[in-house]
Design a binder for these strands. Structure first.
Lengths: 227, 227
DNA sequence: CCCTATTCACCTATCAGACAGGTCAATCAT
DNA sequence: ATGATTGACCTGTCTGATAGGTGAATAGGG
């Protein structure tokens, strides 16, 4: 019989380690003691300690470099995350679209206000490529993604950009599979150009109008699509 | 000299394991082979395998239960995540506010459309408590959070709810510390009531107007606040 | 005296073997 | 029949050994 320890050792070590970092006020790039030292400090075996480190690495708290040591990651970085149950059904798709309307709509509003001449040229080049691929009948999903990414960047709001980027992974997952070849890109194609022109002209209202048309056409496709 | 393998073993194992899950189409709760078997399958040592498992556990791909085995977690759950460098300065705060405008604005729009009588009563009770605390001069940060959460729920969009929930952790972090006692809640206080009334009356336009007033007053506070 | 190649101390990466202890079902004794 | 026991199967953890990455000190040649 031993002491009562229902919590896994690696979990305790992981917490202790985080406390250690906080107490010593370690910052980005600071080096932690070597694995050997840490095993002595916490009185655990190497394997438990390494599992704890691997766990913390997965949670982006530390960074382990071969031959160098263990380093603290930027603690001033806020990490947001969430889980969404994926159900490929109409309501989920429409719900996703609402969020896209909110986030990308704001991005477009800001982009129309703040886009620079250089960024305008970049997007113009992107749209030319879009047109080229379209005429050749090749896949436009990738260039479509790039277009929206550029607009997102033009909004000049790093936080919005980050949220939108991680969220776009969700609707790409949604729309690639079930609706991959349903004329989705055909229907939205013309709005990319009208929307760009409005943004380039710094016309917030017109840009949002075109964006809403784009979203509306997407919504129509989803509503009429037999899943 | 050996073969070129710059990638860590545990990383390779982790990927192989994910492939294995996908190929075998394993679902929530399915059991993986025992650690012993897996080491044979992948031809690696125990420690590498365990580190890989711990890594996957941290990423919520598997669940390890003592004495039972390793189990697959819900793979139909989409996990979004992102990192944001926190800098407590005016621009970051304003950038955060823009995202909040986008997400919560959409939530309010939807809530005004779809709120149920039961939810109206819940929010009403929440606001009464808000008023009570206000009059007693107690902290209203918690009840304020609850209010926004209820509105969020009334939007009846689980995906928006999830995104907003994880994101709200960010702006709580931002606003709690630097602006904790700067009359932030005083200034926004009246708008909670006007906004609620508009939502309860299913008046989308008025609700958004009130929400924008609330956001504008927040923006003013930030702009005038000497950091 | 300077530059380069070697060496060495320090670290992480990974393996294999051993023992402790949790879990569950089959089995055995009452 | 029922309740305790056992044993098969697992994960949890420790340890000693070997391999290999990294960077600074160091030795040797010009």
């Amino acid at each position: 019989m031993k002491k009562i320890q229902k919590i896994h050792l690696y979990e305790q070590v992981s917490e202790e380690l985080q406390n250690y970092i906080q107490e010593k006020e370690l910052k980005e790039g600071d080096k932690l003691p070597s694995v050997e030292r840490l095993t002595e400090m916490f009185g655990v075996g190497r394997s438990s300690l390494r599992e704890a480190l691997r766990y913390l690495e997965a949670n982006e708290v530390v960074r382990i470099e071969n031959g160098k040591g263990v380093f603290v990651r930027d603690m001033d970085t806020f990490r947001f995350s969430g889980k969404i149950k994926i159900e490929v059904e109409r309501n989920s798709l429409l719900a996703t679209l609402d969020v896209r309307r909110a986030l990308e709509g704001k991005a477009i509003e800001l982009a129309a206000k703040r886009i620079t001449p250089k960024q305008i040229k970049e997007i113009e080049a992107c749209l030319n490529e879009y047109r080229r691929l379209k005429e050749k009948g090749e896949s436009t999903s990738k260039i479509d993604f790039t277009f929206h990414q550029l607009v997102n960047k033009a909004a000049a709001n790093p936080i919005l950009e980050s949220v939108l980027e991680s969220f776009s992974a969700l609707y790409n997952k949604f729309f690639d599979r079930p609706l991959g070849n349903t004329g989705l890109f055909d229907a939205t194609y013309p709005f990319h150009f009208t929307m760009f022109e409005a943004i380039a002209a710094h016309d917030v209202r017109a840009a949002l109008t075109e964006f809403n048309k784009l979203m509306d056409s997407l919504e129509e496709i989803i509503k009429n699509y037999e899943i």
